[in-house]
Design a protein around this nucleic acid. Structure first.
Length: 586
DNA sequence: CTAGGGTTAG
């Protein structure tokens, strides 16, 4: 049975039958292909590819080999419809690893949008079982886009796939959800999750854990709890990962009493016979440390040892950071020693914590000594090590030392980043050395390090301190030009600067801009304005503002109390021993 | 394929 005659192969394959051509391709005799079959252009290759795809005898790997060779040989990419025919033929032959790698390069190239790929696939002439094969291809396409960090396109492909009645799987949907979380796009996580259920793509344990994680990261703890109920209704039980995720959510995003809730979750998991693991303890230890309760954290360390769960480097790092932020560097050094005697070897994060501890106490020689220790131990310092030290030097007013450290970091092959510049600029500003600060801004520009919110806040506060409020307002304009969202700090700093200069009208104007920018006046904003009026003896105005803030549900704080003490006492406010403000009437 | 640790303003 001869596959084809000369007349069928025509100009594209010269006067060879497709079996011979296939043979030449599978042996990669490309020069013979050019000479004998006349494949001397991308167009000729494309024509031959179509012939091979039409023929029931050419096998897909051979087609793919010719496709790849001709694209690289003629330095041009084939049209999308041809590419789609290749994808269909690979899918029909169930050559999934070839299909995956084709889709990977298609996703990587970024030449085509997700909708155009799906459209082209849907009208491709190939395969009788197009529906099933389209689903597999679309599923792999979404995955390939996710893996190539093209999350937006992956999301688009996810939605379009539904229009073509493709059945996607959790193999692509779970990674998509994860990428959306990593990019902080929680709204989309919820939408994709709901759409999955609508399309009857059965979520599995990992899907639920992922969605719960996204909601926790966004601080939507109640919604996360709802999803736990969802998973139960699907017959799935929360796992240790589910609990750890929820505990971390409460530790990082919970309101007052959050550690109590985290602890309640721990008890709940234990009574559900789910054993806490190292991550559970690490999460709780970090939570208690961040809550300023290192003694509770240390008790959990002891509990770990009792349960024969070995603390690891993460456990110790949380504790060391907690102790250092409370000024207990000695305790941190004790733990460092304990680490060295155990299997948890200190890493760069460990050292960064202790460097910060020393810096906070102004022990710069010790901090710098640790950097030298790291270099001696062949433990590479990171940009954060240098930033921490540089900030320490800046806060002690040692700007030459800080600049020297910047040179040292460059010598170690680490490039300064935004925080590096922010620390230095803030240091120079504190010293009133605006010209050095400005030079650094130019240097950032040269190195294409983009100024961020903190850079602007530092500069605005420095200009306000020097009463150069017009320049400060200009910086606010500039932020909006480059669509950098100003924060409460930005506005409050400006309002404070303008009030101090006696320019109330301008301050109120900034307040109006603040509301327009979607940021509502907070306690700090009111404190600034109340201070302005009470400082001028305008107690009526000050009282009006106090009422206004109460109406908005804002809670006055110790600063408010100190500004208008008499009025606050009259209203029943009393500061407690910790400096917090209480109201016995409330 | 899902969970935990480090720097900069105020």
């Amino acid at each position: 049975m001869t596959p084809s005659s000369c007349s069928q192969t025509t100009a594209a394959a010269g006067c060879l039958d497709l079996a011979t051509v296939s043979d030449i391709i599978s042996h990669q005799h490309w020069s013979r292909l050019k000479v004998l079959a006349g494949i001397t252009s991308a167009a000729a290759a494309a024509q031959l590819l179509h012939l091979l795809l039409d023929s029931p005898h050419a096998d897909p790997p051979t087609v793919r080999r010719l496709f790849r060779w001709s694209e690289s040989h003629f330095h041009s990419s084939h049209p999308l419809p041809l590419h789609c025919r290749l994808l269909h033929s690979l899918a029909a032959a169930k050559l999934y690893s070839d299909l995956r790698s084709e889709l990977h390069s298609l996703a990587k190239s970024g030449r085509h949008s997700a909708p155009s790929i799906l459209h082209s696939l849907s009208i491709s002439s190939d395969t009788r079982r197009r529906g099933a094969s389209l689903s597999v291809i679309a599923d792999m396409l979404v995955l390939a886009l996710v893996k190539n960090s093209r999350t937006e396109s992956a999301l688009e492909a996810f939605y379009r796939a539904g229009d073509y009645r493709c059945r996607l799987s959790i193999l692509s949907c779970n990674p998509l959800l994860n990428s959306l979380i990593k990019e902080g796009r929680i709204e989309n996580v919820e939408k994709v999750y709901k759409e999955m259920i609508r399309r009857r793509i059965a979520p599995n344990l990992i899907t639920f854990n992922t969605v719960i994680n996204g909601l926790c990261k966004a601080g939507k703890l109640r919604r996360a709890g709802d999803v736990v109920e969802d998973m139960k209704s699907w017959g799935l039980s929360p796992s240790v990962i589910t609990y750890n995720t929820l505990i971390d959510g409460y530790c990082k995003k919970g309101q007052a009493g959050k550690m109590y809730k985290a602890d309640a979750l721990l008890r709940e998991m234990v009574s559900a016979k789910i054993h806490p693991n190292v991550v559970t303890f690490n999460t709780l230890i970090d939570g208690y440390c961040k809550d300023g309760n290192t003694s509770a954290a240390m008790r959990f360390l002891e509990e770990m040892n009792r349960q024969e769960l070995s603390p690891n480097v993460v456990t110790y790092n949380s504790l060391i950071n907690g102790l250092c932020s409370e000024g207990k560097v000695d305790g941190a050094l004790g733990l460092l020693k304990e680490m060295e005697d155990s299997n948890a070897m200190p890493n760069v994060v460990t050292f960064n914590g202790i460097v910060l501890g020393f810096c906070k106490k102004g022990m710069l020689a010790e901090a710098k000594g640790l950097l030298d220790d790291m270099l001696e131990r062949n433990l590479a310092p990171s940009v954060i090590t240098f930033n921490t030290l540089i900030d320490g030097y800046c806060r002690s007013g040692l700007m030459e030392g800080a600049t020297g450290l910047k040179r040292l970091m460059l010598g170690s092959g680490i490039r300064p980043n935004v925080p590096t510049y922010n620390c230095l600029i803030s240091g120079f500003c504190r010293n009133g050395d605006m010209s050095s600060a400005t030079k650094l801004l130019d240097e950032m520009e040269e190195n294409s390090v983009k100024a961020d919110l903190i850079t602007y806040n530092v500069l605005i506060s420095a200009l306000c301190r020097e009463q150069k409020t017009a320049k400060a307002v200009k910086l606010l304009d500039e932020m909006q030009e480059i669509s950098l969202q100003p924060s409460h700090v930005t506005y409050n700093t400006l309002i404070d600067g303008l009030c101090k200069k006696g320019n109330l009208r301008a301050a109120l104007n900034i307040r109006a801009r603040m509301e327009k920018g979607g940021k509502h006046a907070n306690v700090v904003t009111y404190n600034i304005l109340i201070k302005y009026f009470s400082g001028r003896g305008k107690m009526d105005e000050a009282n009006k503002l106090l009422n206004e803030m109460l109406e908005k549900g804002l809670v006055p704080n110790r600063v408010t109390y100190d500004i208008i003490k008499e009025e606050m006492v009259e209203r029943g406010y009393i500061p407690d021993i910790d400096g917090h403000l209480c109201n016995d009437a409330a």
